[in-house]
Protein backbone atom coordinates (compact mmCIF):
# COMPACT_ATOMS: atom_id res chain seq x y z
CA UNK A 1 0.00 0.00 0.00
CA UNK A 2 2.36 2.61 -1.21
CA UNK A 3 -0.41 5.06 -1.86
CA UNK A 4 0.35 8.71 -1.37
CA UNK A 5 -1.53 10.11 1.55
CA UNK A 6 -4.38 12.39 0.67
CA UNK A 7 -4.86 15.69 2.45
CA UNK A 8 -6.60 15.87 5.81
CA UNK A 9 -9.50 17.74 4.26
CA UNK A 10 -9.88 15.04 1.61
CA UNK A 11 -9.94 12.40 4.35
CA UNK A 12 -13.18 13.89 5.69
CA UNK A 13 -14.77 14.92 2.43
CA UNK A 14 -14.35 11.58 0.65
CA UNK A 15 -17.05 10.07 2.88
CA UNK A 16 -19.54 12.73 1.86
CA UNK A 17 -19.61 11.98 -1.83
CA UNK A 18 -16.85 10.08 -3.60
CA UNK A 19 -16.77 7.14 -1.16
CA UNK A 20 -20.15 7.77 0.40
CA UNK A 21 -21.11 4.60 2.27
CA UNK A 22 -24.67 4.52 0.96
CA UNK A 23 -24.44 6.09 -2.49
CA UNK A 24 -21.05 4.85 -3.68
CA UNK A 25 -20.09 1.72 -1.76
CA UNK A 26 -23.61 0.61 -0.78
CA UNK A 27 -22.62 -0.38 2.74
CA UNK A 28 -24.99 -0.55 5.66
CA UNK A 29 -28.14 -0.80 3.56
CA UNK A 30 -30.20 -2.64 6.17
CA UNK A 31 -30.70 0.34 8.52
CA UNK A 32 -30.73 2.66 5.51
CA UNK A 33 -33.79 0.90 4.14
CA UNK A 34 -35.44 -0.13 7.38
CA UNK A 35 -35.63 2.95 9.57
CA UNK A 36 -35.76 5.91 7.20
CA UNK A 37 -39.56 6.18 7.18
CA UNK A 38 -39.27 9.50 9.01
CA UNK A 39 -36.55 12.16 9.02
CA UNK A 40 -36.18 11.90 12.81
CA UNK A 41 -35.54 8.18 12.62
CA UNK A 42 -32.99 8.73 9.86
CA UNK A 43 -31.24 11.35 11.98
CA UNK A 44 -31.23 9.16 15.10
CA UNK A 45 -29.94 6.12 13.23
CA UNK A 46 -27.31 8.25 11.48
CA UNK A 47 -26.06 9.69 14.75
CA UNK A 48 -26.06 6.33 16.56
CA UNK A 49 -24.11 4.72 13.73
CA UNK A 50 -21.68 7.64 13.56
CA UNK A 51 -21.07 7.40 17.30
CA UNK A 52 -20.31 3.68 17.07
CA UNK A 53 -18.15 4.20 13.98
CA UNK A 54 -16.16 7.02 15.50
CA UNK A 55 -15.57 5.32 18.86
CA UNK A 56 -14.66 2.00 17.26
CA UNK A 57 -12.31 3.69 14.80
CA UNK A 58 -10.60 5.52 17.64
CA UNK A 59 -10.12 2.40 19.77
CA UNK A 60 -9.11 0.10 16.97
CA UNK A 61 -6.65 2.63 15.64
CA UNK A 62 -5.11 2.90 19.11
CA UNK A 63 -4.95 -0.85 19.52
CA UNK A 64 -3.93 -1.62 15.94
CA UNK A 65 -0.41 -2.69 16.84
CA UNK A 66 -1.50 -4.92 19.70
CA UNK A 67 -4.26 -6.91 18.04
CA UNK A 68 -2.89 -10.13 16.50
CA UNK A 69 -3.79 -10.53 12.85
CA UNK A 70 -5.64 -13.83 13.34
CA UNK A 71 -8.11 -12.52 15.91
CA UNK A 72 -8.58 -9.05 14.51
CA UNK A 73 -12.17 -9.53 13.30
CA UNK A 74 -13.21 -11.02 16.64
CA UNK A 75 -11.58 -8.10 18.43
CA UNK A 76 -13.26 -5.55 16.18
CA UNK A 77 -16.65 -7.11 16.73
CA UNK A 78 -16.26 -7.15 20.50
CA UNK A 79 -15.30 -3.48 20.49
CA UNK A 80 -18.07 -2.54 18.06
CA UNK A 81 -20.66 -4.54 20.02
CA UNK A 82 -19.65 -2.76 23.22
CA UNK A 83 -20.22 0.66 21.68
CA UNK A 84 -23.48 -0.43 20.06
CA UNK A 85 -24.74 -1.49 23.47
CA UNK A 86 -23.67 1.85 24.88
CA UNK A 87 -25.60 3.65 22.13
CA UNK A 88 -28.64 1.40 22.58
CA UNK A 89 -28.78 1.94 26.34
CA UNK A 90 -28.26 5.66 25.87
CA UNK A 91 -31.22 5.94 23.51
CA UNK A 92 -33.40 3.77 25.75
CA UNK A 93 -32.45 5.83 28.80
CA UNK A 94 -32.70 9.32 27.36
CA UNK A 95 -34.85 9.10 24.24
CA UNK A 96 -37.32 6.29 24.91
CA UNK A 97 -39.66 7.32 22.10
CA UNK A 98 -36.94 7.22 19.44
CA UNK A 99 -35.54 4.03 20.95
CA UNK A 100 -38.94 2.39 20.56
CA UNK A 101 -39.43 3.52 16.99
CA UNK A 102 -35.97 2.29 15.93
CA UNK A 103 -36.75 -1.06 17.53
CA UNK A 104 -34.18 -3.78 16.88
CA UNK A 105 -32.21 -1.70 14.39
CA UNK A 106 -29.97 -0.08 16.99
CA UNK A 107 -28.62 -3.42 18.27
CA UNK A 108 -28.27 -4.43 14.62
CA UNK A 109 -25.67 -1.70 14.08
CA UNK A 110 -23.23 -4.42 15.22
CA UNK A 111 -23.57 -6.12 11.88
CA UNK A 112 -23.53 -2.93 9.82
CA UNK A 113 -20.90 -3.64 7.16
CA UNK A 114 -19.96 0.02 7.05
CA UNK A 115 -18.48 -0.09 10.54
CA UNK A 116 -16.59 -3.36 10.26
CA UNK A 117 -15.55 -2.35 6.75
CA UNK A 118 -13.95 0.91 7.90
CA UNK A 119 -12.11 -0.87 10.70
CA UNK A 120 -10.71 -3.51 8.40
CA UNK A 121 -9.95 -1.15 5.53
CA UNK A 122 -8.85 1.94 7.35
CA UNK A 123 -8.54 2.21 11.13
CA UNK A 124 -6.46 -0.92 11.48
CA UNK A 125 -3.85 0.57 9.14
CA UNK A 126 -3.92 4.28 9.88
CA UNK A 127 -2.92 6.64 12.64
CA UNK A 128 -5.41 7.75 15.24
CA UNK A 129 -5.95 11.22 13.78
CA UNK A 130 -6.67 10.01 10.29
CA UNK A 131 -8.91 7.21 11.54
CA UNK A 132 -10.98 9.74 13.42
CA UNK A 133 -11.25 11.99 10.36
CA UNK A 134 -12.27 9.02 8.25
CA UNK A 135 -14.88 8.10 10.84
CA UNK A 136 -16.24 11.65 10.92
CA UNK A 137 -16.51 11.81 7.13
CA UNK A 138 -18.09 8.39 6.75
CA UNK A 139 -20.47 8.94 9.66
CA UNK A 140 -21.48 12.32 8.28
CA UNK A 141 -21.97 10.94 4.77
CA UNK A 142 -24.06 8.07 6.12
CA UNK A 143 -26.15 10.35 8.34
CA UNK A 144 -26.82 12.91 5.61
CA UNK A 145 -28.10 10.29 3.17
CA UNK A 146 -30.27 8.72 5.89
CA UNK A 147 -31.76 12.10 6.80
CA UNK A 148 -32.38 12.93 3.13
CA UNK A 149 -34.05 9.54 2.58
CA UNK A 150 -36.12 10.05 5.71
CA UNK A 151 -37.20 13.51 4.57
CA UNK A 152 -38.29 12.37 1.11
CA UNK A 153 -40.13 9.33 2.46
CA UNK A 154 -41.78 11.23 5.29
CA UNK A 155 -42.87 14.05 2.96
CA UNK A 156 -44.47 11.73 0.40
CA UNK A 157 -45.62 9.07 2.85
CA UNK A 158 -46.93 11.27 5.67
CA UNK A 159 -47.02 14.78 4.21
CA UNK A 160 -44.59 16.11 6.81
CA UNK A 161 -40.87 16.58 7.48
CA UNK A 162 -39.44 16.21 11.00
CA UNK A 163 -43.02 15.85 12.18
CA UNK A 164 -44.06 19.26 10.82
CA UNK A 165 -46.98 18.93 8.43
CA UNK A 166 -46.08 20.59 5.15
CA UNK A 167 -48.65 19.24 2.73
CA UNK A 168 -52.23 20.17 3.45
CA UNK A 169 -55.37 18.08 3.59
CA UNK A 170 -55.55 17.96 -0.21
CA UNK A 171 -52.55 15.66 -0.20
CA UNK A 172 -53.31 12.00 0.13
CA UNK A 173 -50.15 10.37 1.55
CA UNK A 174 -48.50 7.68 -0.57
CA UNK A 175 -48.54 4.93 1.99
CA UNK A 176 -46.03 2.92 -0.02
CA UNK A 177 -43.30 5.43 0.79
CA UNK A 178 -43.24 4.58 4.49
CA UNK A 179 -43.34 0.87 3.70
CA UNK A 180 -40.29 -1.17 2.57
CA UNK A 181 -40.94 -0.79 -1.21
CA UNK A 182 -40.78 2.98 -0.80
CA UNK A 183 -37.36 2.63 0.82
CA UNK A 184 -36.02 0.63 -2.11
CA UNK A 185 -37.52 2.99 -4.69
CA UNK A 186 -36.23 6.13 -3.01
CA UNK A 187 -32.77 4.68 -2.49
CA UNK A 188 -32.74 3.56 -6.13
CA UNK A 189 -33.51 7.08 -7.28
CA UNK A 190 -30.87 8.53 -4.95
CA UNK A 191 -28.19 6.23 -6.34
CA UNK A 192 -29.33 6.92 -9.91
CA UNK A 193 -29.11 10.66 -9.36
CA UNK A 194 -25.66 10.30 -7.76
CA UNK A 195 -24.42 8.24 -10.70
CA UNK A 196 -25.93 10.69 -13.16
CA UNK A 197 -24.12 13.58 -11.50
CA UNK A 198 -20.86 11.62 -11.53
CA UNK A 199 -21.30 10.82 -15.21
CA UNK A 200 -21.92 14.43 -16.08
CA UNK A 201 -18.86 15.48 -14.13
CA UNK A 202 -16.75 12.88 -15.87
CA UNK A 203 -17.82 13.97 -19.34
CA UNK A 204 -17.75 17.68 -18.61
Amino acid sequence: MAKKQISIWQEIVKGLWRENPVLATLLGLCPTLAVTNTAVNGLAMGLATSFVLLSSSLFISILRHFIPHQVRIASYIVIIAAFVTVADRFLAGFFPVISQSLGPYVPLIVVNCLILGRQEAFSSKNKIGRSLLDGIGMGLGFSLVLIALGMVRELLGSGSIFGITLLGEWFEPWMVMILPPGAFLTLGFFIAIANWINDRRATA
Binding site: L63, F66, I67, P68, V71, A74, S75, V78, I79, A81, A82, T85, V86
Partner: peptide
Protein backbone atom coordinates in the same frame (compact mmCIF):
# COMPACT_ATOMS: atom_id res chain seq x y z
CA UNK B 1 -5.42 -9.68 23.71
CA UNK B 2 -8.95 -10.96 23.15
CA UNK B 3 -9.43 -11.45 26.87
CA UNK B 4 -8.21 -7.96 27.58
CA UNK B 5 -10.45 -6.42 24.94
CA UNK B 6 -13.45 -8.36 26.17
CA UNK B 7 -12.71 -7.44 29.78
CA UNK B 8 -12.32 -3.78 28.89
CA UNK B 9 -15.56 -3.78 26.92
CA UNK B 10 -17.29 -5.56 29.76
CA UNK B 11 -16.07 -3.01 32.24
CA UNK B 12 -17.27 -0.11 30.09
CA UNK B 13 -20.66 -1.75 29.67
Amino acid sequence: VLTLIAALSGAIL
